[in-house]
Simulated scan of single mutants.
Amino acid sequence: MSALGELGRLKSATSVGKKQNKAAYLFLTPWFVGLALVTIGPMIASFALSFTRYNLLSPPKFNGFDNYVRMWEDERLHTALQVTFTYVLVSVPLQLAVALFLAIILDRGLRGLAFYRSAFYLPSLLGASVAIAMLWRQIFGVDGLINQVLAWFGIEGQGWISSPDTALGTLMILHVWTFGSPMIIFLAGLRQIPSMYYEAAAVDGANRRQQLFRITIPLLTPIIFFNAVLQLIGTFQSFTQAYIVSGGTGGPVDSTLFYTLYLYQQGFANFNMGYASAMAWLLLIITALLTVVAFWSSKFWVFYDDEN
């Protein structure tokens, strides 16, 4: 009887589990539909179009690997890659450094912490908007705020946006200004570091600088890695800032020609949708490879507190 009773209980539990699974799948159905229609479907379509010549006005015509071969010979695409890599490799570390610095300051328990946390997070919400990009264009214009401030000190300004030497730098400053999101994540990570480590270090005579580089940063490396990967992927997809500041041209002299902006020009200005699809897949491959490299390198510098 006991064996039969146990078998009955197992069957009952299995039946309940199946019903719960069905309910879960039912509630997840809208997400699965969205994933298929909004993500997987367009990805498959773009991959197919990358092997075609398609101008949006006539049916696509298969052309093999011509679009991918063309990318090797496209000088503007090479320029766009150079501009984008420069933008990413400079602005991402600077943004993370500023975010970590401010998180450490806020972690000391300032009065009105909630206000500062909200105020510093706000640029992350607005930084990629059209309004902020237009404002940035005015600030760094010939008659903008930057030149007005310089004039107070007797320094003659210039058109920061219109100069190929400084145009990209203004976009880097804009990206660094959107430090709020990684700062909040850093602040949460700092709150998770046990205070006993600092107390033990203080007993041993360690000063603040030593505690920062021997305790805080090593224990924060998982958060640094997480923020770095997120910002790396997101920054490669930057578009609005360059489009608004340059008027959609990527100028002056292609100095702000982000890869996504050139992809937009090919797809929606020149109606080379097949070529633009191939460019999109190249961008996916680049970001995927860099992410893989980041995860591989993490084993050399990321420290987890639960490691033996």
Rank of each mutant, 00 (worst) to 15 (best):
R214F: 07
S162V: 10
I217Q: 04
N308R: 12
I285D: 02
L96G: 05
L135C: 12
V33K: 12
S46F: 13
F51V: 01
P93S: 09
D306V: 15
Q241L: 05
W136F: 15
A280V: 09
A133W: 12
G8S: 10
A24G: 08
L263R: 01
G250L: 01
M134Y: 14
F295L: 05
S2R: 15
L230A: 09
M172N: 08
P59G: 05
S238C: 05
P164Y: 03
P30T: 01
A201N: 02
S298V: 06
Q138V: 12
M172Y: 11
S50M: 04
Y116E: 02
P252H: 06
T39A: 10
A97R: 01
Q211F: 09
I217G: 00
F65N: 03
I146V: 10
S163N: 10
I285S: 08
S58Q: 14
F140D: 02
Y87S: 01
R70C: 04
L49P: 12
F226P: 04
V293Y: 07
G234S: 10
T86F: 11
Y275Q: 03
F236H: 06
L49F: 10
A119S: 14
V69R: 14
L100P: 02
P252G: 02
T287R: 13
Y264I: 02
A119T: 13
N272F: 08
F32G: 04
D165H: 08
F115S: 05
A114M: 14
V83N: 05
W31K: 11
V88C: 04
R137D: 00
A276T: 04
N308Y: 15
D165W: 07
I161M: 00
Y197M: 03
R108P: 07
V98H: 08
G159Q: 09
F213V: 01
M183R: 07
I224M: 06
T39D: 00
E75W: 15
L232E: 04
G169C: 03
L37F: 12
P252R: 02
M43Y: 12
L263S: 04
L230P: 00
L187P: 09
G189R: 06
N227C: 14
T29A: 13
L290A: 03
T52A: 07
V16T: 14
V142H: 08
V16I: 07
S2H: 10
L219H: 09
L212P: 00
L113F: 13
E75T: 14
T166F: 11
I173A: 11
L56D: 03
V142S: 12
R108V: 03
D143W: 11
G157R: 07
L219I: 08
V16A: 11
F186S: 00
N21M: 11
T14S: 10
G154N: 06
F300W: 13
D143G: 06
L96H: 10
I185A: 03
R76D: 00
S129M: 05
I155H: 03
I104P: 01
N21E: 14
L220A: 03
T14N: 12
P182H: 08
W301K: 09
E156H: 14
A288Y: 12
D66V: 02
F51Y: 05
